[in-house]
């Protein structure tokens, strides 16, 4: 029983690592409400997938600081820490 459980836990942590990799960081999934995930949606709002990581970070910081004008992003960026912004930027930069 103990060995079975230990084996199960071992498998589970491998699975957990895979899931952690496959899943977007906090906040990232919500972006595609406005920033199209699909190239099929016609929108003036920029698609984030594949954008330069540093460019996303810069834009978010400027929106947050109020030095870049936006319609809603100035209000939304204020809800994210530097760490969260870095993680979201890395996540989208790695997509195609």
């Amino acid at each position: 029983m103990g060995r079975v459980l230990a084996a199960a836990i071992g498998l589970a942590s491998i699975a957990a690592a895979a899931v952690a990799w496959a899943q977007p960081p906090a906040g990232a999934a919500a972006c595609t409400g406005c920033h199209p995930a699909s190239t099929r949606a016609q929108s003036p709002v920029v698609r984030l997938a594949g954008l330069d990581r540093a460019a996303i970070v810069r834009a978010m910081r400027e929106f947050r600081a109020g030095t870049r004008t936006g319609t809603v992003m100035d209000r939304i960026a204020k809800g994210f820490t530097d760490e969260e912004i870095q993680a979201i930027a890395a996540w989208y930069a790695a997509q195609r």
């Binding site: 589970a12 942590s13 957990a16 899931v19 919500a30 809800g79 994210f80 969260e84």
Partner: peptide, 18 residues
């Protein structure tokens, strides 16, 4: 749900509305 079904702990989310 995916994490719970694969034995992982759900992470703390952040959500948005516009």
């Amino acid at each position: 749900v995916a994490r719970l079904l694969t034995g992982a702990t759900p992470s703390t989310p952040k959500l948005i509305n516009t």
